[in-house]
């Protein structure tokens, strides 16, 4: 079977979500790091955007679609239609958080960061995830973890790294972060990933 390839810039950004997923699932993949989108590469991109996931002739863009595809391959999306839908509902929320942070995180000074944390547009998502985890062991509300628990870890880790963690207490999310941080599958990637501020 062909080893999949992920193409992205040398930063964490959006690609850290599918990368963490592949690492955690133990699937070997190539990471094609690019500084710019060349004309040749642009021709392969449906919406002229990265990340791009390739597996043989199959190509897909859009981070959530890539995450879903990898998870489906590894039976990591949840057992039932309902569970899969709940997982996707959380993933959509995680992507909204990412969009809020990616847009302007690296343009903020300390004062603006503080303001963002206190009046955070992402706070409602953190509260929502925390509420689900206080009532269920996993975010998709099933009996087993799914990709979305791991994606929530990546979100918390990323937001913390950017200094944009919303004010408030999120013990369940912090515990989730600790759980995945200590995962042997992720150790190597977490230590070697780019030290970028976005």
């Amino acid at each position: 079977m062909t080893k999949p390839t992920l193409t992205y810039f040398p930063v964490r950004g959006r690609v850290q979500f599918p990368r963490c997923l592949l690492e955690y699932l133990g699937e070997e993949y190539n990471f094609n790091e690019v500084k710019t989108i060349s004309d040749d590469l642009r021709k392969q991109l449906l919406f002229k955007q990265l990340p791009l996931y390739q597996e043989g002739d199959f190509k897909i863009v859009q981070t959530p679609a890539i995450i879903d595809y990898i998870s489906e391959k590894h039976d990591f999306r949840g057992k039932t239609k309902e569970e899969r839908a709940r997982a996707h509902q959380c993933l959509a929320g995680i992507m909204e958080v990412l969009d809020h942070c990616l847009g302007y995180s690296f343009k903020m000074d300390k004062q603006q960061q503080e303001k963002f944390r206190n009046e955070s547009p992402i706070k409602k998502f953190f509260e929502g995830f925390e509420m689900v985890l206080s009532q269920n062991k996993y975010l998709a509300s099933g009996e087993k973890e799914t990709y979305v628990d791991l994606m929530a870890f990546v979100m918390v880790d990323y937001v913390t790294n950017l200094g944009l963690m919303p004010s408030g207490d999120y013990p369940k999310l912090i515990s989730l972060k600790k759980h995945y941080e200590s995962s042997p599958q992720l150790k190597k990637y977490l230590e070697s990933r780019p030290q970028s501020n976005f």
Partner: peptide, 17 residues
């Protein structure tokens, strides 16, 4: 399965972008 995720990438583009 492949088609499902090709659909998904278009749905995501309209929503997110």
């Amino acid at each position: 399965l492949e088609e499902e995720f090709l659909v998904d990438q278009i749905v995501t583009a309209i929503h997110a972008d």
